[in-house]
Design a binder for these strands. Structure first.
Length: 889
RNA sequence: GGGCAGUUAGCUCAGUUGGUAGAGCAUCGCCUUCACACGGCGGGGGUCGUAGGUUCAAGUCCUGUACUGCCCACCA
């Protein structure tokens, strides 16, 4: 046990000790052979290059809440941590570092460069792991994984070969998205479309051997040298007669056919389209369909090729300006207008993406996508459900997945070409001879795989697949995938596809897609906007628990989180409140633990009431977390601890603590129980402060001591569910509040002890109030308390009515008599308003005959009660007014 | 062009199966009451975007509509 707690919670002193303890103790390293239902979550692997941002913090907090809660519920929990090699992103970072030394990766050569990246990872890759650690994540560090680990690389190769052998991976020429800065192909979803202001130029194409002409509209005149056709709609009467003739490409003078295809939108532009099969995906499709020539005029660096004639060597941007100039000079520029249109950008470096024809590797997605689709929602639920449609839609319209990347950092494609016979060899093990001709001149494919290829195997590759491991047997499929919706396609859908192929089973039973964390204005956080909230800074400033509680409390399903620093600061108060409630408890419990007794037999309304409330929170929190309602779980704890325990129970229990014997011991043990169990409930959300308090709490006789991270969820105590007593307590609270209100509104100092006369409505109230006389005296701060239904109230007194019980505070000696009249009028007006509303219901025939009987009954009861209150209050007002008048005389 | 969210107190958001609107922060008043001023007590503040519909009863269900945000999409 630790010494007394300090008066303010200081997270920095506490947290590091627990991080260390959890790690050294291997607290979160489960044994697959141990009992308990397997419950696994794999971390969405952050990039090794990365630093923890607030989105990670949210993601990791929610996962940790689930894992810690599942442990409490007796599950055998495995949370696998790890990082992603993040091909393009990491290569970019290292290349930038090289550039600062004045070197390029090409100067270094492939092998040395890769060596350099590994070095870089050794040096900086632990940063993100440290940050995961500082968040308090209960991950199993002994099972740390990296997508380029030997085991995972083996899995990658196995899947590649298997897909290839099944005919689901092929190599082919296709128009892909090319980033000329990253110098690699990108998958469709790695391209971000953004509306940009551009121009739509109308350019005249002359018709061969004719005076006629055709005007086409284009946003990309630099591709004109690559034109191999002009296309119109087959039913367009304006152009029908030109179909089959030849158009002359401006400047270059090449003749190209005029073709017809219903793809063309007659309404847009001029209704005539120039076709550049090598530099536009639609034109590529047209080119294939109409068997057109394919002329590439822009190279992989964005420079005009020789085929572009006089524009050879220009950048594509320069070419655009020049060619427009030239066409204008020739008099063939017919028009120029501004146009907003979508332009694709590289999701890694934001360079404009160029459609580019090249040889790439693809995964056939049709069959895989169907299986992934069919698994939802029966085998895998997607939450919130609104994302289900999006998921379906993507899979329904999916195109083959381009998986080759022209970079060096990543899993190199396990394909070799025989230099002698040209045979393509795809194999798990590096081949030494060509199986076809026996040659040893085998050349491995230069490309590496898309990062998402290896990530898509993550749920099972991290558990040791393709080996048959105890982890796979116990923990697969994983319980839930928790991630942001921004990677639903990149990652979630692809894991679903790959798992079906490799495991013939879904990778997870639930997918919980959480929100994006935005700034207070709802903007995305970004370094350039300067609105980022750095979780590490927040942890240092306010403590990890405050950050975690804030994120949890804001994690309502299906809604973005608008975060600002003052919210975190606000919840730090809550952490401190818990700390001080614990301090108070321990001061009153003392060194020696109280003697346990049967809580179901507790006496004292306040004890019975708080135990009842405790049962409710336990139920609520458990239910909320089962349904991923994180915010509800956090709110329940917050309300109970602050609103019930601190605001009331701690005050109510003070008199008991001054006594000796049974009442004191009872209060102590109840307090001990309440504190102990709320610590367990809060622990998944705020692991540090709860563990620290738990550690300082004495252990009662007959109770086992274990550390909080290993504590079970508190079992329900049915004998403590006491709704009747809870309602009685509610009545007492209302009485006390009424007295406080009178004091506050009549400017009677809260500290000033007043006399109170209660005129209960019935014997039951008399009994209840008598039984709790002491409690009322203390909490309402009274000098004297008279409970007497027949008592004669002094005329000059302030009054209120609660459930028919009249509350009278004599005002003799106080100043503000006139204030009371105004106060009563306000109360009466409020009552009257309510009464009218209720009576309107009761006067309605339809309501009486059609509403549920309970509802009608409730309304009737309410009406009677309100009327009674009104009458009593009116009478008191009259008496008081009289007193005022007499006083004036 | 298609799809999905959101619109509730000054701000940020809750509001499970329809039954007289809640929290935190902010604001106002009072209080250094021996756990906590990162505190206590009390007050003020909302015709729940808008128009209809269903219902005895709608913030809650349905339809239309406005605005905001996001995602998807091959109109050059």
């Amino acid at each position: 046990m630790r010494d007394t707690l300090s008066s303010g919670y200081e997270p920095n002193h506490v947290e590091e000790r627990w991080r260390k303890h959890w790690e050294e103790d291997a607290s979160f390293t489960p044994d697959p052979a141990s009992p308990g239902e397997g419950y696994a979550i794999v971390i969405p692997p952050p990039n090794v290059t990365g630093a923890l941002h607030i989105g990670h913090a949210l993601n990791l907090t929610l996962i940790d809440v689930l894992c810690r809660h599942a442990r409490q519920k007796g599950k055998n929990v495995l949370w696998i941590p790890g990082t992603d090699h993040a091909g393009i992103a990491t290569q970019n970072v290292v290349e930038r570092a090289l550039a600062r030394e004045g070197k390029t990766r090409h100067e270094l050569g492939r092998e040395a460069f890769i060596e350099r990246v590994w070095q870089w990872r050794e040096e900086y890759g632990h940063r993100i792991l440290d940050q995961i650690r500082s968040l308090g994540c209960s991950v199993d560090w002994t099972r740390l994984r990296f997508t380029m680990d030997e085991g995972l690389s083996k899995a990658v190769r196995k899947v590649f070969v298997s897909l290839y052998n099944d005919g689901l991976i092929y190599k082919g020429d296709y128009i892909i998205n090319w980033c000329s800065r990253c110098h690699t192909a990108l998958a469709d979803d790695e391209v971000e479309h953004e509306d940009e202001a551009g121009h739509l130029w109308r350019i005249r194409y002359h018709i061969d051997q004719s005076d006629e002409e055709l005007v086409v509209a284009t946003t990309r005149p630099e591709t004109i040298p690559g034109d191999t056709a002009v296309c119109v709609h087959p039913e367009d009467t304006r152009y029908q007669h030109l179909i089959g003739k030849q158009a002359i490409v401006p400047i270059l003078g090449r003749k190209v056919p005029i073709i017809a295809d219903s793809y063309v939108d007659r309404e847009f532009g001029t209704g005539a389209l120039k076709v550049t099969p090598c530099h536009d995906p639609n034109d590529w499709m047209l080119g294939k369909r109409h068997d057109l020539a394919f002329i590439q005029v822009i190279d992989e660096n964005g420079i005009m090729k020789e085929e572009s004639g006089s524009y050879h060597g220009l950048t594509k941007e320069a070419c655009r300006n020049k060619i427009i100039e030239d066409i204008a000079a020739q008099g063939d520029l017919v028009g120029e207008e501004k146009l907003q249109h979508a332009v694709g950008h590289c999701y890694r470096c934001h360079t404009v993406v160029e459609p580019h024809v090249s040889t790439q590797w693809f995964v056939k997605t049709t069959a895989l996508a169907k299986e992934a689709r069919d698994a939802v929602p029966d085998k895998t639920r997607i939450l919130p459900e609104s994302w289900r449609k999006t998921y379906y839609h993507w899979l329904d319209t999916i195109r083959d997945w381009c998986i080759s990347r022209q970079i060096w950092w990543g899993h190199r494609i396990p394909a070799w070409t025989c230099a002698d016979c040209g045979k393509l060899v795809v194999a798990e093990q590096d081949p030494t001879v060509c199986p076809s001709c026996g040659s040893t001149h085998l050349q491995q494919d230069e490309d590496v795989l898309d990062t998402w290829f290896s990530s898509s195997l993550w749920p099972f590759s991290t558990m040791g697949w393709p080996e048959k491991t105890p982890e796979l047997a116990k923990y697969y499929p994983t319980a839930v995938l928790v991630t942001g919706f921004d990677i639903i396609f990149f990652w979630v859908a692809r894991m679903m596809m790959m798992a079906q192929h490799c495991m013939h089973e879904v990778p997870f039973k639930d997918v919980y897609l959480h929100a994006l964390v935005r700034d207070a204005q709802g903007r995305k956080m970004s370094k350039s906007t300067g609105n980022v909230i750095d979780p590490i800074v927040m942890i240092e400033k306010y403590g990890c628990d405050a950050l975690r509680f804030t994120l949890t409390a804001f994690a309502a399903m299906g809604r973005d989180i608008r975060l600002s620093e003052d919210r975190i600061e606000g919840y730090r108060h809550f952490v401190n409140k818990l700390w001080n409630a614990a301090r108070f408890s321990m001061m009153n419990i003392g060194e020696t633990a109280p003697k346990p007794f049967d809580l179901g037999a507790a006496t004292g309304l306040h004890n019975i009431w708080i135990l009842h409330a405790l049962e409710e929170v336990k139920k609520d929190v458990d239910q909320a977390l089962e349904e991923y309602r994180f915010n509800d779980a956090a709110q329940s704890c917050y309300k109970f601890l602050w609103g019930s325990v601190c605001d009331w129970y701690l005050e109510l229990v003070k008199p008991d603590m001054q006594k000796e014997g049974a009442p004191k011991n009872q209060a102590q043990f109840v307090l001990w129980t309440v504190l102990r169990e709320i610590l367990v409930l809060l622990h998944p959300i705020m692991p540090f402060v709860t563990a620290e308090i738990w550690d300082a709490l004495p252990v009662c006789e007959g109770f086992e001591h274990y550390e909080l991270a290993k504590a079970p969820y508190p079992p329900s105590r049915p004998s403590c569910v006491r709704p009747k007593e809870a309602a009685q307590m509610d009545f007492l609270q209302q009485v006390i509040v009424a007295v406080r209100t009178i004091k506050a509104e009549l400017s009677i100092s809260p500290g000033k002890k007043v006399r109170l006369l209660l005129q209960p409505a019935d014997d039951e109230q008399v009994q209840l109030l008598e039984d709790n006389r002491e409690l009322i005296l203390t909490v309402a701060r009274l000098e004297a308390l008279e409970i007497d239904p027949g008592a004669k109230a002094p005329k000059a007194s302030a009054s209120a009515v609660v459930l028919g019980c009249q509350i009278v505070v004599p005002l003799k000696g106080t100043v503000d008599l006139a204030g009371e009249l105004a106060r009563l009028d306000k109360q009466l007006a409020k009552l009257e308003k309510n009464l009218i509303a209720v009576n309107k219901h009761l006067a309605d025939e339809n309501f009486l005959s059609r509403a549920q009987p309970e509802v009608v009954e409730r309304e009737q009861r309410l009406s009677t009660e309100l009327l009674d209150n009104k009458e009593k209050l009116t009478a008191m007002r009259a008496r008081f007014a009289q007193a005022l008048a007499e006083d004036a005389e």
